[in-house]
């Protein structure tokens, strides 16, 4: 999931222009709407759903080099549609974006790619699995063993991902509600990837290993007008358990939250609005913006009360859609690491 708010806001005009203003209602435009009680079918659902407006394949990873230095890595392929469906050639209504970043303790590298659908420059195929934009790719014979590559002007990486646990469905069997009005998306994850490979940095190549987390999400609905931003946490505790939690910030100051507790065996407990709590403790001034980079995160039902701190506060993604995304350290009732994404602070 993730840059959802911004992507939604950003892409909304696309849809409007493509369809005229007739379909401005919450569900129109000819796009298919997510419905409760979905039944996913894999590997087909690893592939794209062009009849939905937006979709992403999103990987974050916490990495360590042999000398003990910690790194973060992100790889995302977004799909957004001007109109539902697919067509060949330049007439395809699909547009693809790729984002990639690497965070070191004192540096942050980020880059992006753009592509039109229909001509082969970017796309996703379910089986064998292949998601690509330009020379960037996430691909493998199946979803459990995949190569991951990306390059920017001053950095790049080549990684191998191997799943060590099951897929995890969020919300109600993968139907994840995003607001009190009922906006929702389909949302599943693979939080149990082991990852290893080479980071290509200006100082040279660095061999790293660690844990990666893949999110898959697709939807057709924008968020509510009164939702201004998004704080999303994926935390992996040393105990083996994991926590996905997010809160949507609303213009009246209230919050809408949702979370999933993932046991080390992959068993999930979903929590509705209010169970998960995240409170900013301090902010950092980044690119002229005040961004909260240390948090108190609570999920009382699981006895979680932790202090989440950015590994490198300067993990700003200064791309055409700006947001903050970087690795975090966890201490308190639980210890561990994870990833934090924040939008709407620009």
């Amino acid at each position: 999931m993730n840059v959802k708010v911004i992507v939604f806001l950003f892409l909304w005009p696309f849809g409007v222009l493509a369809q005229g203003f007739s379909g401005l209602g919450t569900g129109g435009d000819g796009f298919t709407m997510p419905k409760p009680q979905p039944a996913f079918s894999f590997p087909a659902d690893h592939g794209p759903h062009p009849e939905y407006r937006i979709e992403w394949w999103y990987i974050t990873a916490n990495l360590n080099s042999p000398d003990g230095t910690t790194y973060g890595l992100q790889w995302t392929l977004f799909r957004t549609a001007l109109a539902p469906g697919e067509a060949l050639g330049w007439q395809s209504p699909q547009i693809w974006f790729g984002h990639a970043s690497v965070t070191t303790p004192d540096q942050h590298f980020a880059t992006e790619r753009f592509a039109r659908g229909g001509i082969g420059q970017a796309g996703v195929e379910a089986s064998p699995f292949r998601a690509w934009i330009d020379e960037w790719a996430l691909q493998g014979a199946d979803f459990d063993l995949m190569n991951l590559t990306a390059n920017g002007p001053d950095f790049g990486y080549d990684m191998l991902l191997q799943a060590t646990g099951p897929l995890v469905l969020h919300g109600d069997k993968g139907y994840s509600v995003k607001s009190a009005e009922g906006q929702a998306s389909y949302y599943y994850s693979q939080p149990f990837f082991k990852i290893g490979g080479t980071l290509k940095l200006p100082i040279g190549d660095i061999e790293v290993t660690g844990d990666a987390w893949l999110d898959r999400e697709w939807s057709s609905q924008p968020l509510s007008d009164d939702q201004t931003g998004w704080d999303w946490f994926s935390l992996s505790f040393d105990s083996g358990a994991k926590l996905m939690g997010f809160q949507l910030r609303q213009t009246d100051g209230s919050l809408y939250s949702s979370s999933t507790w993932i046991g080390s065996d992959g068993a999930t407990t979903s929590y509705a609005d209010g169970a998960f709590g995240a409170t900013p403790l301090s902010t950092s001034l980044i690119e002229g913006k005040d961004v909260p980079t240390s948090w108190r995160v609570t999920l009382p039902d699981q006895g979680v009360d932790v202090f989440v701190k950015a590994m490198n506060p300067d993990a700003w993604m200064g791309l055409s859609i700006p947001y903050w995304e970087g690795p975090v350290n966890v201490s308190g009732s639980h210890t561990g690491q994870g990833y934090l994404e924040m939008t709407g602070y620009e």
């Binding site: 592509a115 001509i119 082969g120 420059q121 690509w132 330009d134 020379e135 390059n151």
Partner: peptide, 9 residues
Amino acid sequence: DYISLRRSG
């Protein structure tokens, strides 16, 4: 040719 170039970076 365009696609080949893009796909090779």
